[in-house]
């Protein structure tokens, strides 16, 4: 029995170590490459650091626009995190605690969006983002409101609604905010909250929003923190959407910035700089994880009862 457990321990540790090596290898290699001097062979394989790490990091940091890109990424990631948590808390609250008509329809609509990641709905999303008022324009066109207005005014009227979200933080953040996953997580959490708590609050005189803010929210903090870590990384790592919606260098995010330092046909590869930039770009998410890890683990292990 003891012998068997011993072997099993070794086996799990073995698997763990192999997994850790697999995960850490690319990061290690990125650090190695980032420490190479300028003009190193790009197809050579290095195993030991080259001693130029801080020099390269400084160069990457001083490169034009990186600070701005980090800032943009930060705004986007925080915006997406806060927005997603706020929206999904509210929608989970509505779905769990209110009996309204089409409640199940709302539930299933949210559920279906689970199957539609950003990449799938990117074309229509882009169209809407290019002119957020396009749907209203369509309604106006459909109802021939222009002609009615023209008739009322006695002269020709041209209604052109336009509100572009391109190259704006709103455009970067808003389309990513709806989140079925987070809604489900919170719904699941709310379902574990005993019904009597809601009834006790009712008798105490708390209306729905009071109950939400004074009781449900404080009870959800650990799940919120856990989710915030995941969502921050999700927002920070967005690539395709920022690529589409931003054109001005002022508005690009750091992930795109890293991609732009990759060798193109008419420029020399500067792998050491690319890797140094990549390392700088990973630091903020790492910081967030370290900062919130205590809550993160708590939120995953025990939803505080």
């Amino acid at each position: 029995m003891i012998e068997r457990a011993h072997w099993f321990d070794r086996l799990t540790y073995g698997a763990l170590i192999v997994g850790a090596i697999l995960v850490c290898m690319p990061i290690y290699y990125a650090v190695i490459v980032a420490s190479m001097p300028d003009g190193s062979e790009s197809d050579a394989v290095y195993l030991l650091p080259g001693g130029h790490l801080f020099e390269n990091l400084a160069n990457a940091w001083n490169k034009e626009g990186l600070g701005r890109q980090l800032f943009n990424s930060g705004v986007m990631a925080v915006g997406v995190t806060v927005g997603k948590i706020a929206i999904s808390l509210l929608s989970a609250f509505a779905i769990t605690y209110f009996r309204f008509r089409f409640r199940m329809t709302a539930f299933w609509l949210i559920f279906i969006t689970l199957m539609l990641p950003v990449e799938v709905r990117i074309v229509p999303t882009f169209e809407v983002a290019a002119n957020a008022l396009a749907p209203f324009q369509a309604i106006i066109d459909l109802l021939a409101i222009e002609r009615v207005a023209g008739w009322l005014a006695g002269h020709e009227v041209d209604i052109n609604l336009e509100w572009s979200l391109l190259d704006s933080y709103t455009g970067l953040i808003l389309p990513l905010i709806a989140s079925a996953t987070a809604t489900f997580l919170f719904r699941q959490f709310f379902l574990t909250v005993p019904e009597e708590l809601c009834e006790a609050a009712k008798i105490d005189g708390a209306g729905p929003m009071r109950f939400f803010f004074r009781i449900l929210l404080p009870m959800s903090t650990t799940s919120m923190a856990a989710l915030a870590v995941i969502l921050f990384i999700f927002g920070w790592n967005q690539y395709l959407w920022p690529l589409l919606i931003t054109t001005e260098p002022e508005m690009t995010t750091v992930v795109i910035g890293v991609a732009r330092t990759l060798p193109t046909e008419d420029a020399d590869a500067q792998w050491n700089l690319t890797m140094a930039t990549a390392i700088l770009a990973t630091l903020p998410p790492v910081a967030v994880v370290l900062l919130l890890q205590r809550w993160f683990v708590k939120g995953l292990v025990d939803a505080e009862k």
Binding site: E196, E199, A200, I203, I215
Partner: peptide, 20 residues
Amino acid sequence: VEPKDRDIAMVFQNYALYPH
């Protein structure tokens, strides 16, 4: 009449205390 305006107080089986 809403529960809060009935001038009653209730003690629940599982106490229903606010945990936080």
